[in-house]
Design a binder for these strands. Structure first.
Lengths: 146, 146
DNA sequence: GTTGGTGCAAACGCTTTGCATCCAT
DNA sequence: ATGGATGCAAAGCGTTTGCACCAAC
């Protein structure tokens, strides 16, 4: 089930970089790998720590730059947490929205977007064409609600 | 119509402060007044500039602290813009979501929350109790779509 | 008179940038 | 070989904090 959502394997990455004339560096691959292997949103510092375990010399600035690149390529999404901090996760397939556990801060699941039809209705009601939206859901995962 | 949404007048503010044993200072009142008289979300710096026009000595830190207080009281909402910057607006009545114009950055309207029923459905589908959500809509206002 | 709020400036944390070096192509 | 990517350190920016003073109660 999760595989359906996170369908983008690491294998095609090299091609994706090359198609955009970007270099396929071990740093970029590590950043992506770390996110792919995590079931949680990760903060910059967590990512940095995990990447350094794989590639000891990696600098924080490189993590920032790699994330920007991966976001630009649509491989990673930036998550805005309620406290104003940012975290990052592998981009899900299609248009979905993260559900974040309020206890353990894990991404529990990506919900399908419930706004497609609603946007339409809202556009009619308000006379404003809704172009875009930003939605995050917060709840308690099974482990934490026990 | 806008009056319906922004129904909280400035008159009751004093009482609201006192009910929480907070002091009713000219700085706090000015910050609220500035937001109330604006039809746009305002950045900290805009608020600070406008407040200084009313109360020349006001420091930036005070604006930050006043906003925190007003948010805590539910009188003001913090808006997370796409670029990561924050802005502030008078809180609408009830549970609503801002529609921000992608051209002029004004708050066009507060849409009624379309998620009440949806949260319920999502909770059933996923088995996760959705506790909360964060939603912002982006579109183009009449003036800007011309 | 007390207590909490303010102004100022310094500190803070996250993020970006400049530059020399390195490495994927 | 060469241009883009990296590492490091410094700078930048928005925000918070410490402290002495002031004003609301």
């Amino acid at each position: 089930m999760k595989d359906k959502v996170f369908a983008k394997g690491q294998d095609g990455i090299r091609d994706i970089f090359h198609a955009r004339k970007l270099k396929c560096t071990p740093q970029r691959l590590s950043v992506f790998k770390v996110l792919e292997e995590s079931e949680t949103y990760l903060s910059i510092n967590s990512i940095h720590a995990k990447v350094k375990a794989l590639l000891p010399g990696t600098g924080l600035a490189t993590v920032y730059r790699s994330l920007d690149t991966l976001i630009d390529l649509g491989l990673v999404v930036k998550v805005h947490l309620e406290d104003g901090c940012h975290s990052y996760a592998v981009a899900p397939e299609g248009h979905r929205h993260p559900i974040v556990c309020t206890e353990c801060n894990r991404v529990i699941e990506f919900a399908e977007c419930p706004l497609d039809k609603i946007s339409e209705k809202l556009s009619k009601d308000t006379g404003i064409e809704i172009q875009n939206h930003f939605l995050q859901l917060f709840g308690k995962c099974r482990g934490c609600s026990a």
